[in-house]
C-alpha cells in the first residue's frame, strides 16, 4: 500500500518525459507530414485519377499507368533521360575526381578552390542561356571558332545527335566544381601517413591513386554519386530554356514531359503517374548504387 503512490509518481514522471519529447519533435514531424508525406500520398492518389485542376478529380484506377506503358513519348523520355544521366554523371565524376586529386596533391590554395566552385554560383538558367548564345548555329562564337578552324558548324542545340551531349556537358561545367569540392572533402579524411608510407615503398602517384585514394574514397564517392545521379535524373531547367524538348523529342526528358503534361495540357493525373514512375525509378537506381558502392561502410578502420 505504501509503495503505490511512489510508483505512480515515477510513472507520471516518465509520461511527462514522453510528452516533452513529443513536443520537441513535433515541429519536425509536422513539417515532414505536411510537406513530405501528404504531398507524396496525394501525388500517388492523383496518379489514379483524371484531374485537370479546374474540375474535381475522378478516380480512374490504373488507366494512367496502362496508358503510360503504351506511351512511346514516355519510353523515349526514359531513354533520353538515361542517356543524359550516363553522359552527365560519367564525365562529371571523372573530371571532378581529377580536379579534387589535383587540388589535394598539387595545391591547397584557397583561391584555387574558390575558382573551381565559381560555375556553381551561376544559376542554371543563366548558364543555359549563355551557352545557348555561345553555341548558336549562326551567331554563336563557338560555331564561329569551329568555322575558323576549318570545321563544319555544329547544331549543338538543334540537331538530334548533339542536343543531349551538349546539355549534359553544360551541366557538367556547372556542377563539376561542386562535386570536386565534395570529393576533396573526402580526400582530406585519408590520413597523409598512408601516402608517406606509399612513397617510402616507392609507389608512383598513379599507383597510390588506385591503391590508396580510390579504395578509401569509395564511401564518399558512393554518396556523391547517389546525390548527383538523383539530381541528374531531374534535369529540367537547362532543357526548358534551351530546347523545350526539341529537336522533335530528342531532349524531351522525363521532368519536362511531366511538366508539359501537367501545366500545358492540364493532365495532372497522368503527370502524377509519370512522377510516381520517376520516383520508383530513382528508388531502384539509388538502392542499386548503395549496394554496389557499399556506401554505408568504410575500409579506413
Amino acid at each position: 500500500m505504501t509503495t503505490a503512490p511512489a510508483s505512480t509518481g515515477a510513472r507520471r514522471r516518465r509520461r511527462d518525459d514522453t510528452r516533452l519529447a513529443l513536443l520537441f519533435i513535433a515541429p519536425a514531424t509536422i513539417g515532414l507530414l505536411v510537406f513530405y508525406f501528404w504531398p507524396l500520398l496525394r501525388g500517388v492518389w492523383l496518379s489514379f485519377t483524371s484531374w485537370d485542376v479546374l474540375t474535381p478529380a475522378t478516380f480512374i484506377g490504373v488507366d494512367n499507368y496502362t496508358a503510360m506503358v503504351a506511351d512511346p513519348v514516355f519510353w523515349n523520355a526514359v531513354r533520353v533521360t538515361a542517356l543524359y544521366v550516363v553522359i552527365n554523371i560519367g564525365v562529371q565524376t571523372v573530371v571532378a575526381l581529377l580536379i579534387a586529386v589535383l587540388m589535394q596533391r598539387l595545391s591547397q590554395s584557397i583561391l584555387l578552390r574558390s575558382l573551381v566552385l565559381t560555375p556553381y554560383l551561376v544559376s542554371n538558367v543563366v548558364a543555359a542561356l549563355v551557352f545557348l548564345w555561345i553555341l548558336d548555329f549562326q551567331l554563336g562564337i563557338g560555331n564561329n571558332i569551329l568555322e575558323g578552324l576549318g570545321l563544319d558548324r555544329v547544331g549543338f542545340f538543334t540537331s538530334e545527335e548533339w542536343v543531349i551531349p551538349t546539355i549534359a556537358l553544360v551541366n557538367v561545367w556547372r556542377h563539376m566544381g561542386y562535386t570536386a569540392l565534395l570529393i576533396f572533402a573526402g580526400l582530406l579524411t585519408i590520413p597523409p601517413t598512408m601516402y608517406e608510407a606509399a612513397r617510402v615503398d616507392g609507389a608512383s602517384e598513379v599507383r597510390s591513386f588506385f591503391s590508396i585514394t580510390l579504395p578509401l574514397l569509395r564511401p564518399i564517392l558512393g554518396l556523391v554519386l547517389i546525390v548527383s545521379v538523383i539530381g541528374s535524373f531531374q534535369v529540367f531547367d537547362t532543357v526548358a530554356v534551351t530546347t523545350s524538348g526539341g529537336p522533335v523529342d530528342a531532349s524531351r526528358v522525363l521532368q519536362l514531359y511531366i511538366y508539359e503534361k501537367a501545366f500545358a495540357q492540364f493532365d495532372f493525373g497522368y503527370a502524377s503517374a509519370l512522377s510516381v514512375a520517376l520516383l520508383l525509378l530513382l528508388m531502384i537506381v539509388t538502392f542499386l548504387q548503395y549496394r554496389v558502392t557499399r556506401a554505408g561502410q568504410s575500409d579506413l578502420s
Binding site: 548555329f137 549562326q138 547544331g155 542545340f157 538543334t158 540537331s159 530546347t243 523545350s244 526539341g246 529537336p247
Partner: peptide, 16 residues
C-alpha cells in the same frame, strides 16, 4: 523542300 534547295534555313540553324 525549300530547305534542301537552299532557299530557306535548315532546322539546325533556327532550332526551337
Amino acid at each position: 523542300g525549300l530547305v534542301e534547295k537552299g532557299f530557306m534555313p535548315p532546322y539546325e540553324e533556327v532550332g526551337t
